[in-house]
Simulated scan of single mutants.
Amino acid sequence: MNNASQAQPTVLVLMTEQEKNEFMPPDIEAGLREMFPNLVWVDAPLEVGQWHYSLREQRPEIVVCAWETPPLPLEAAEHLKYLCFLCGSVRSLVPRELIERGLIVTNWGSIVSNTVAECSLLLILSALRRVGNWSVAMRTRGEWKQGRHPDTLSLFGRRVGLHGLGAISRELARLLVPFNVELSAYSPSVPDETYRKLNIRRADSLEDLFSTSDVLVELAPGKPDNYHLVGDDLLRLLPQQAVFVNLGRGMVVDEAALVRASRERGLHIALDVYETEPLPADSPLRRLDNITLLPHLGGPTPDRRRDCGELALQNLGYYVSDLPLMNVIDLGTYDRAT
């Protein structure tokens, strides 16, 4: 156990009833209570003042929490040693200074990669089959296809480009195997061996990647250097009838350039992330015909959030056994997050 002077660390769990049902269904909750019989369960949401009071009163060594958690106060560093966050980005929850002081923070990490990759595949197929176009046209204008030659495409045998080759892209590469696609990726920091194992061509540059991709999937990280990296110059390189899919970070793509590419070149687009979320009601993206939009649904669906709970339970077991934890948020990871 990380704190050898205590037989049982003080554990505070903060979740809404819905978060509890999704992340900690009965079997996982039972495992948590068996590991920590004296844990304190606090119902969210809490006002900031109530949250700070709970932390001062309970002085937990471990906090387990999800989305509906107010930011941690700096004073929590006096007693808190491990924050087990069941979700993704911790930037709005954990001040950087707490990690600098040694607070251990974990999140869902790559455990959600399969469901995000699944959503990526959905958007690829939707864009190729023009689902966004036809869904709106049939529901609002009573339209039907004209003749036997609709403007739709198949995924089989396509050239698919991945901008970024992290955990989500690797899961997507596996899902794409049955479609016999030609895969390319641009991710300079990834070693050649990874490309070989996944049978992915290493693109020499972003220009190379965009110009040789019938389907371009944007999964680059949201670091400052990538702000509006994808703009007019790259989008113009996409071949005719190409589709552009973004499940990475909205800030990587210049949305005004996307609108221009759609209107001027007929680029078909499928998006799950945006520079401003929720997507403003007056966004030009909402008025395009050849587009499929989702409201940031790419993460784990409620039925698969138990995977995050199981990961958290495993990490908590590692923590009390003084073993290395999975998906630790160090300062580098923290700074790259959005």
Rank of each mutant, 00 (worst) to 15 (best):
A203H: 12
S205G: 00
P178E: 11
G164S: 05
S184Q: 04
G147C: 07
K145I: 07
L162W: 02
A167L: 03
E182A: 06
R201S: 08
G147V: 06
V116F: 10
V131S: 05
R141C: 10
S184K: 08
R196A: 01
C119Y: 09
L128H: 04
F179C: 04
R158K: 14
R201P: 00
R130A: 06
V177T: 07
K197R: 08
R158P: 07
K145D: 01
R196F: 02
R202V: 04
P178S: 09
A167Y: 01
L198H: 06
R158V: 01
R139A: 15
L123I: 02
R159L: 07
G157F: 11
N180I: 06
L122F: 01
I168A: 00
A137C: 04
P188T: 01
R148K: 12
A173G: 00
Q146I: 09
A185Y: 01
T152C: 04
V131F: 13
V181C: 09
L153Q: 04
Q146G: 03
G132A: 05
R159Y: 09
V136M: 10
V177C: 15
L123E: 02
R170I: 00
L172D: 04
P191N: 12
S135M: 14
T194K: 12
R141V: 00
S154T: 12
E193H: 06
T140Q: 15
A167H: 13
L162F: 11
H149D: 14
G147F: 13
R170K: 11
S120Y: 06
S187N: 04
T194M: 14
F156C: 05
C119V: 12
A137T: 14
L125R: 13
E207A: 02
R202Q: 13
G132E: 07
E207W: 10
P150S: 09
F179T: 07
P150M: 09
H149T: 04
R159F: 11
I200F: 15
P178K: 13
Y186K: 06
H163A: 05
N199D: 14
A167G: 11
V181P: 03
P178Q: 13
H149A: 13
L183N: 00
K145V: 05
V181W: 09
I124K: 05
V136W: 07
L206P: 00
A127R: 15
H149F: 14
Y195T: 07
R202F: 09
M138G: 06
R174W: 08
L122W: 02
R130C: 01
L122I: 06
S187W: 02
S126H: 09
G157R: 13
R129N: 09
V181L: 06
W134Y: 14
K145Q: 11
G164P: 00
M138W: 09
G132I: 02
L176N: 03
M138A: 13
A203M: 13
L123K: 05
C119I: 12
H163M: 07
A117P: 00
F179I: 09
L123S: 03
H163L: 08
S184V: 01
K197G: 00
H163I: 04
H163G: 03
E207I: 03
I200G: 01
A137I: 00
S126R: 15
A117H: 05
S189V: 11
P150Y: 15
D151N: 11
K145N: 03
